[in-house]
């Protein structure tokens, strides 16, 4: 009789593998399908209007549209996986871009600026990461404060300069405009991020903290330490994003980066990752989400949709994806 039962169990095992996979990954599958749907749609429809989304020109437009959001969002996954939202991202990009232009012009090289930005990003990471648990406040508060401080610093810089925008004078920044470079840098960033997120304690711990802080603590995870690590890794992504933001036009202004934290949030949600973080956080969400939005930016005008309409269409698509992936049933949005 025992044997018979075992046989039955084994049979259940085999047939349920697919079901199990679907059950655990349906949100991811739906988000990926969204991107896939856009790709297929534009591949079929754009040639009808005499253009192709796959033309080198359009692909390069796509890359320059997506690169900054993608670089930021991949980094931001570490913060979001904690269940935290960082709204200082935009102003960080603004300040880093400004620093890159200023130091570039002063020294004739981008390197000192990059190092300074990295240093600064670490300081910001420590403030954003540690102040929540140390002062027992929700994490969005420090990021609001940081955002305002950064806005203030940016304002002081530009009013001292007496201008609203600055640009590189001697440095050749065409390197950052190459779509090949963008692809390569993004791929490298993704590989490094995936490594840290999936194969080291940092990623595993940030997800655990996002899922349940008490359990994480009782399992020996130092909340403050790993929050800071997560913010530092994210900060590296922001510096990289700032480099491409500045590098596309070789300039920065007092409004550079404004509202970018929203782009990050949209990308991550579109990619099917819960804003509440936790175990379902994935790097791929950032990439898929950023590309889904950018492919709409590039593709919609190609199929004859007036530019003024794209926002409405994007909003509707965002709503559909959120309804499919982030409903409370799946616990994706904060309760």
């Amino acid at each position: 009789m025992d044997k018979g039962e075992n046989m039955e169990n084994i049979k259940v095992n085999d047939s349920s593998n697919f079901k199990e996979f679907w059950y655990n990954n349906k949100v991811t599958i739906i988000s990926y399908s969204g991107l896939l749907f856009c790709i297929i749609l534009f591949t079929i429809v754009t040639p009808l209007t005499g253009q192709s989304i796959w033309s080198p020109e359009k692909l390069s437009t796509l890359m320059s549209d997506v690169i900054v959001t993608a670089l930021m969002s991949v980094g931001a996954v570490f913060i979001y996986s904690l269940g935290n939202i960082d709204i200082s991202i935009g102003k960080q990009i603004g300040l880093y871009s400004t620093i890159l232009v200023l130091t570039g012009n002063a020294t004739g090289s981008l390197l000192p600026g990059i190092l300074l930005c990295i240093l600064l990003s670490i300081v910001i990471a420590v403030i954003n990461g540690a102040s929540g648990p140390v002062f027992k406040i929700i994490s969005i508060i420090p990021s609001v404060v940081v955002m305002q401080i950064l806005s203030g610093i940016i304002m002081i810089i530009y009013s001292d300069l007496g201008t609203r925008s600055i640009s590189l004078k001697t440095i050749d920044y065409s390197f950052f405009k190459s779509p090949i470079v963008m692809v390569v840098v993004l791929v490298i960033e993704i590989i490094i991020a995936v490594y840290f997120f999936n194969f080291t304690a940092i990623g595993k711990y940030t997800r655990a903290i996002g899922a349940n802080k008490t359990t994480a603590m009782q399992s020996g995870i130092s909340i403050v330490k790993y929050r800071i690590y997560a913010y530092i890794i994210a900060g590296m992504g922001f510096v990289l994003a700032a480099l491409f933001q500045m590098g596309y036009t070789g300039s920065a202004s007092d409004s550079t980066g404004t509202g970018y934290h929203m782009n990050v949030m949209i990308a991550i949600i579109l990619g099917g990752m819960p804003v509440s973080g936790g175990m379902r956080s994935r790097i791929s969400a950032a990439v898929v989400g950023a590309f889904t939005f950018s492919i709409l930016d590039v593709g919609l005008p190609l199929i004859g949709l007036p530019t003024r309409m794209t926002f409405i269409v994007k909003a509707s698509i965002f709503l559909i994806v959120v309804l499919l992936t982030s409903r409370k049933k799946y616990g994706a949005l904060p309760k």
Partner: peptide
């Protein structure tokens, strides 16, 4: 509420305290 990560897999829960030694 304290011992388990409900939204995680069995595997992820079991290995959680052992991560430093697996690393």
């Amino acid at each position: 509420s304290e011992a388990l990560l409900l939204s995680a897999t069995i595997e992820e829960n079991i290995v959680l305290p052992s991560i430093p030694s697996l690393s």
